[in-house]
C-alpha cells in the first residue's frame, strides 16, 4: 500500500513550471524530481538509492515477464491518460499469461517544456493505477529530450507477474470445440483517442475502455474455468488477436459478427469514417478460449468481476486449419483477415 500523497504538485511551480533538460541530467534537479514527485507518489524507498530492485519471488512459482512502451497522442483522452494506460497495459499483458502483476518498472522519456503540472497528473494516475492493481513500482528511469523531439511524455513499463495456478494459458493450448468469449464491447479506446486527437466533434459521449483485467482473469481461474488461452484486444483489435491465436493454435476460428458486442456510438463513428470495429484497439477487453461446458460459469464469473458484457462470440471450429472465419450479419461466411497497415478513414 502506498502512502497517501498530496494532490498538489510537489515541485513548487515557482521553481520549475516546466520540465527542463536538467531534470534528466543526473544532478540535483533530477534527484529532486525523482524524490519529490516519483518516490512520493509511488511509495518507493526514499533513503537508499540503488541501481536496481532486488525481488523476492515466492519459491518455485512460475513468473511472467513483459514490456511495453506507451506513446499515445494525446496523452490525456476521454476516460484515461498515458499514465493509467502504461500501468494497465502491462498489468493486462501479464494477466493474459495468467499472471498477477507484482513488480513494475516505469521509464519516462519527457519532452523539455512539458508543464510540470501535466507530469504530476500523469504521475498521480500511475500511482492510482498501481494501487488499484496492487502492483509495486520497483524501479524506474527518467530521461529528458529536447523540445520537439518527443510528444510530451513517453512511458515504458516492464512487469513481472507471479503465476500461482497450474493452468497452461497460451495459443498452443486452444482445442477444437473451445468457445471464444469476449468480456465487453469493442472499440471504445481506439475511437475515443482518435476522436480527441483529430478534433472530431461527435454528438456521443465516448470514453476509453482502459481498465485493468487481472481481477476478471482471476475470477475465471477461481471459478475453476479451464482457461486455454487469453489475449487482450489492443492494436489491431479483435481480428489481429484472433489471427495470431489461429496461427499459434493451428485452428480454424469461427466468429459470429452478430454476437460481437459493439456500442451504438462506436458503430456509428465507424460507419461514418469507414472503419471496422473488429480492427479497432481496446485497452480493457480480452478474448478467452475455454471448453464449451465452462462457458456459463465463465460468463457468470466475469460478470461478477465487473466485465461490462461478457459474451460467447464464436468457437474454435476445426483443428489443423489456420484461419479466422466470420459469419456476417447477413449470414454469409468470409475470412476475417489481419490488416496490412493501419485503418485509414475513407474519402467517401
Amino acid at each position: 500500500m502506498i502512502e497517501p500523497f498530496s494532490l498538489a504538485c510537489p515541485i513548487p511551480i515557482t521553481n520549475y513550471s516546466h520540465v527542463t533538460l536538467a531534470h534528466g541530467g543526473g544532478g540535483r534537479l533530477m534527484h529532486d524530481l525523482i524524490r519529490k514527485m516519483f518516490l512520493s507518489a509511488f511509495g518507493g524507498d526514499n533513503t537508499s538509492p540503488h541501481d536496481g530492485a532486488v525481488l523476492d519471488p515466492p519459491t518455485g512459482a512460475r513468473l511472467a515477464f513483459t514490456t511495453d512502451s506507451y506513446v499515445v497522442s494525446p496523452i490525456f483522452f476521454p476516460g484515461g491518460n498515458i499514465g493509467e494506460l502504461a500501468i494497465y497495459g502491462t498489468v493486462n499483458d501479464l494477466a493474459m499469461c495468467g499472471a498477477r502483476a507484482s513488480w513494475l518498472s516505469v521509464g519516462f522519456i519527457l519532452e523539455e517544456g512539458l508543464p510540470m503540472e501535466r507530469l504530476w497528473q500523469v504521475v498521480r494516475s500511475i500511482a492510482f493505477a498501481t494501487q488499484r492493481c496492487g502492483v509495486v513500482v520497483a524501479t524506474g528511469d527518467t530521461k529528458v529530450v529536447d523540445r520537439g523531439k518527443g510528444d510530451g511524455v513517453y512511458i515504458n513499463t516492464s512487469g513481472i507477474g507471479v503465476i500461482d495456478h497450474d493452468l497452461d494459458i497460451r495459443p498452443e493450448c486452444v482445442r477444437e470445440g473451445d468457445v471464444i468469449l469476449v468480456n465487453g464491447d469493442l472499440g471504445r479506446h481506439g475511437i475515443a483517442v482518435m476522436a480527441k486527437r483529430e478534433g472530431l466533434e461527435l454528438d456521443v459521449e465516448l470514453e476509453s475502455d482502459c481498465a485493468p483485467l487481472w481481477e476478471q482473469v482471476k475470477s475465471l481461474i477461481d471459478a475453476g474455468v479451464e482457461v486455454h488461452c487469453l489475449r487482450d484486444l489492443t492494436r489491431g483489435g479483435l481480428s489481429s488477436a484472433l489471427n495470431e491465436i489461429a496461427e499459434g493454435s493451428h485452428c480454424r476460428l469461427f466468429v459470429d459478427e452478430t454476437k460481437v458486442p459493439v456500442s451504438t456510438a462506436v458503430k456509428s463513428v465507424c460507419e461514418l469514417l469507414g472503419l471496422d470495429p473488429l480492427y479497432v484497439a481496446c485497452e480493457g477487453r480480452f478474448v478467452a478460449f475455454l471448453p464449451e461446458r465452462h462457458a456459463d460459469t465463465a460468463i457468470e464469473a466475469l460478470r461478477q468481476a465487473g466485465a461490462p458484457s461478457p459474451s460467447v462470440i464464436g468457437i474454435a471450429e476445426k483443428a489443423g486449419e489456420t484461419e479466422v472465419i466470420l459469419k456476417s450479419c447477413i449470414g454469409t461466411r468470409r475470412p476475417l483477415d489481419m490488416l496490412s497497415g493501419e485503418q485509414l478513414p475513407r474519402i467517401c
Partner: peptide, 13 residues
C-alpha cells in the same frame, strides 16, 4: 463502396 460491401458481406455468394 458497393464493391466493398458486396465482397465484405458476401453478397455475390
Amino acid at each position: 463502396g458497393q464493391t466493398h460491401a458486396i465482397v465484405r458481406f458476401g453478397i455475390d455468394e
